[in-house]
Amino acid sequence: MSATLSTARLRLAVRDRCLVDALDLQIEPGQVWCVLGPNGAGKSTLLRTLAGLRDPDGGHVLLDGRDIATWKPMDLARRRGFLPQSVVDAFSLTVIEAVTAARHPRLPFWAWGDEDLGAVRAALARFELGNLAERDITTLSGGERQRVNIAALFAQDVGVMLLDEPLSSLDLHHQMKTLQELVLASRAGRAVVFTVHDINLAMQHATHAVLLGGHGGALAGAKEAIVTPAHLTAAFHHPIRGITIDGELFFRAARLTDKRT
């Protein structure tokens, strides 16, 4: 299932501070958007607003051309999925039960308990969780639990996938595996948006970028036009340089120099 997510003159604020002002986005199936910016710039606030879990402070968020606030919760859950930064385990469940729960929006109420586990087992296999299927989620490491969260989002089978810091707690292999799966999901017709701190990983896997400065300014578009040394330096308030290695652009933060005598 594919879907388009867009914003029109979106404004985000926290108390009296404007985080984002007049942001226009058009997130299409087949695209992977990374959201970059310093701590407190509004990355999580933006994702929650795009997911319909927070009202905009101005402007609109549209899912398939319709204001996201007008969607019924169950219909919205069938169209977009959201992975927050942290998930609190309110119940003791096995891994397969936790991932299966993500399939419930696609089932009529009377069919709960009769799920087709094909999509669930495929999601477990995709994130190398098959051998943990019967483990209690409360016994998992932080990285294992994060992979369960991501597998649940994939099992939900939605057109728009929103992930807030999906790489947190993951080791290098599973970071790369997750990013690869997000790219493959986009090639299958999904629209993907994720927040991340590693600029180089974002550049390697995203097609588009949103760069937040935290004071109302926001840049959005194709990654090559947005993620530049000048734009990054302005947003992060720190010198960032671009280096080309084997034809690929990488970014490096300048070292701080101790000028004390």
Rank of each mutant, 00 (worst) to 15 (best):
E134M: 10
D55N: 14
I68H: 04
V88T: 13
R135E: 13
D246K: 03
T233W: 14
N149R: 06
F250D: 00
T261I: 05
A123F: 10
I96L: 11
L47R: 07
I245G: 00
V193P: 14
A119R: 13
V158Q: 04
T7H: 05
V99H: 07
L219A: 07
R80V: 15
V148T: 01
A125N: 15
G216D: 04
A77S: 13
L129N: 08
H215E: 15
E181F: 10
W33D: 08
T244V: 11
V193Q: 13
R106K: 13
D116F: 01
A234N: 12
D57V: 03
D136C: 13
G59I: 09
I137K: 02
A225N: 11
V95D: 10
V183R: 15
H205E: 00
F154G: 04
L219H: 05
D57S: 15
A155V: 06
T4P: 01
R66P: 06
S2K: 02
D258V: 11
L201A: 01
T178K: 11
M74Q: 10
H208P: 03
G143S: 04
D198P: 05
L117D: 07
E144N: 07
A220D: 11
S86V: 09
D246F: 08
L83C: 11
S86C: 02
R255A: 14
K177T: 15
G42T: 05
I245T: 00
S86L: 08
H208K: 01
I68P: 05
T228K: 02
L182S: 05
L256E: 14
G217K: 07
K43H: 12
G142S: 07
T139S: 15
P108C: 01
A90G: 03
I243A: 12
R147F: 12
T207L: 13
A3R: 01
A101R: 02
E248T: 02
D246M: 09
T195N: 14
R147C: 09
L50R: 04
V32H: 05
H60P: 00
R255E: 12
D55I: 09
G113H: 01
A209L: 03
G42E: 11
D64H: 05
L46Q: 14
Q175N: 08
V160N: 06
G143H: 03
P73N: 07
D21P: 02
V210Q: 12
R17T: 11
G37W: 07
R145L: 15
H238S: 13
L93V: 00
L172E: 09
L10Q: 03
L140N: 04
L62S: 08
L93F: 15
H174L: 10
L162S: 07
T94I: 05
